[in-house]
């Protein structure tokens, strides 16, 4: 297992593997999102209760999934970095932070816009919404740390440890917010039971999720390429100076 990682932990070797994957996932992301949008906006039937507003689900739910997945990815790669000390994992974790911020933000904003026509308000202090807002702030904190300690080995550990602490804390936060919500909120406006999801609705949902996943991989790999090439550029200059 470790040997296998060693092979790809070398950034240059990783790039060789990554560039074709990047191209494929970029094209795949474009097409799946395109087809997904056609399905979501045109072909899928309106819900019998929510009518047309149900279409917001096809952007809201996938981006919420993706933001959780991004945090999981950051957490795991920070753990790998702290265990095996391969810089590649840290680059992966760091570069997925802005993507996570955008996913979380779009989930929040589309959720708010979905809430207005269905529940009557943009924002409810519901457990799920609140914990998502906190997730957003943790993402922002990670970005803050990433920017303030840019390019120092100290900052690297800071980032990795913060995402570690955040990862352990997120379930606790979710649990506490759930607890708070169930105890002291008057019966919430959100109707339980949810939408009966038919097969025709599942198709655009999964298409969009797949598209966003490909998009995530594409942006991540582009950013990693930028990061590695930038470093090699700096090292190249250094070697020029020394000679």
């Amino acid at each position: 297992m470790i040997k296998y990682f060693h092979k790809f932990a070398n950034p240059v070797r990783f790039l060789k593997l990554a560039i074709p994957i990047k191209k494929i996932s970029g094209i795949a992301a474009f097409f799946t999102i395109f087809i997904g949008l056609i399905f979501a906006l045109l072909l899928s039937p309106p819900d019998y209760q929510q009518k047309e507003t149900v279409r917001i689900m096809y952007i809201h739910v996938p981006s919420a999934w993706m933001s959780l997945m991004t945090y999981g990815f950051i957490f795991l790669s920070s753990v790998f970095f702290l265990i095996w000390r391969f810089p590649l994992f840290l680059i992966l974790a760091k570069e997925s932070v802005p993507i996570g911020i955008i996913f979380t933000f779009s989930a929040l904003i589309s959720g708010a816009l979905w809430g207005k026509p269905t529940w009557g308000t943009y924002w409810v202090w519901d457990a799920r919404l609140t914990s998502f807002l906190i997730l957003f702030f943790i993402f922002l904190g990670l970005k803050l740390i990433k920017d303030t300690f840019s390019n120092s080995s100290k900052g690297n550990y800071t980032f990795a440890y913060l995402s570690l602490v955040g990862g352990f804390n997120l379930p606790i936060i979710k649990f506490s917010v759930d607890w708070w919500n169930t105890l002291h909120q008057p019966a919430s406006i959100i109707r339980t039971g949810g939408i009966s999801v038919s097969n025709e609705m599942l198709a655009p949902l999964f298409l969009m999720a797949l598209g966003l996943f490909f998009l995530f991989i594409y942006i991540l790999l582009v950013s990693v390429e930028i990061n590695i090439k930038e470093k090699s550029l700096i090292n190249f200059r250094d070697s020029l100076k020394n000679n």
């Binding site: 906190i134 702030f137 943790i138 922002l140 904190g141 803050l144 740390i145 913060l162 602490v165 955040g166 804390n169 606790i172 936060i173 649990f175 506490s176 917010v177 607890w179 708070w180």
Partner: peptide, 14 residues
């Protein structure tokens, strides 16, 4: 301040 408050939230809720 920015980093700490999210982690303090469960404590203050409970």
């Amino acid at each position: 301040v920015f980093l700490t408050i999210p982690f303090f939230l469960p404590i203050i809720i409970f």
